[in-house]
Design a protein around this nucleic acid. Structure first.
Lengths: 189, 189
DNA sequence: CTTGCGTGTGAACGTTCGTTCACTTATAAT
DNA sequence: ATTATAAGTGAACGAACGTTCACACGCAAG
């Protein structure tokens, strides 16, 4: 029953990008009085599903709009996953994106990074910067063309290295400009 | 200048999980009048950064709380990425999670799926279900133990197959119970 | 049957919201 | 210097918000 409310809040929040007002919850939960809503909300606050601002405004708390995190696969986890004994939750945006304004997503074209287990068609989260360290995977412009490779640096010398034996390292003739470093790889099935 | 406002709204929203009120924006933008805020907001609405509900409430629109998606790496993209000519944006949660309530995150332990380019330490988004198709990557319980493997099915016969030559296929002695199928792989650097 | 409690209803209340008005200050053009 | 335009201030407004009354209903225990 309380899970019904939770689910409804959940889908309302993802659809509307904000929590509903009490009046909206009335319709959402099929009540005819805001007071009935207030009691339900109070219980959800106690249960830690939602919380209130310093302004008294409703905001999603743990378990709402977040993904449950379990342990590792091999380590084994409770067969009845309903009883979430490890109740860590994560918001994917917060988990993956540090600097929202300088991060963008990119589709990987080609298999030049396949030995780093980045496949053709994978998505990549890149963060704009020109400060790369040796070993970082970067998006770089070399002699006017863009590419994704390992960034290598030894002393003054700077070059790019693919993660695929069939490709050769790239030593810039004129210019090597790092535009972003790869922070995450995402693959959808 | 307008980008300042955008950034501030952005970080307010990710921190507070809601948009600020006009009074809060006053402090946020260093105004002394709500009217000044109202004009800024109007311009941001025109610019498509934010929008208003059917209830007149402020909600984030494109570019806010979403990640910019550019084309593919090799295909090349504008060097000045500021001028976002391809203005596709994506919300990571919406992008990766279909059924929020039955999805959970799991850390990969071991390299048994390495040939599918899923590494030890990668995160995996799994969706609880028992309907797997031949070729799906699944989380399954075989004879009491949990594992992540390819799900294989030929006629009545059902078994699990690793993506690593050093591991052998698993033919269940007693029971093979699929608990979830893997919908996405996430790797952070 | 009666009592008590949980749950829902309906109305009233003060607060805060976003909007709007008249006015002032700053910037730039003539 | 004068004017026009843009941008900010401060106060006032009705509307909607969340809260809190008193009251009605249903169900289980005594």
């Amino acid at each position: 029953m309380q899970n019904d409310y939770k689910d409804k809040l959940n889908s309302f929040y993802s659809k509307n990008k904000r929590m509903p007002t009490y009046t909206e919850m009335m319709k959402l939960f099929s009540f005819k009085s805001k007071n009935a809503v207030a009691r339900v909300v109070d219980k959800m606050i106690e249960a830690g599903l939602v919380a209130k601002d310093h302004l008294g405004r409703l905001i999603p708390d743990k378990f709402l709009n977040e993904v449950v995190m379990l342990g590792s696969v091999k380590a084994g986890f409770p067969s009845d996953v309903e009883e979430q004994t490890f109740n860590d939750t994560v918001n994917l945006d917060d988990f993956l994106i540090e600097k929202k304004d300088s991060t963008y997503m990119l589709e990987v074209d080609g298999d030049s990074m396949i030995d780093a287990h980045i496949k053709n068609g994978d998505m990549v989260l890149a963060e704009r910067t020109n400060k790369a360290k040796d070993g970082d995977i970067v998006i770089a412009e070399v002699d006017g063309e863009f590419t994704m490779k390992y960034f290598k640096q030894k002393g003054d010398k700077v070059w790019l290295e693919p993660a695929n034996k069939n490709f050769k390292p790239i030593y810039p003739k004129y210019d090597l400009k790092v535009t972003a470093i790869v922070k995450a790889v995402i693959r959808k099935y």
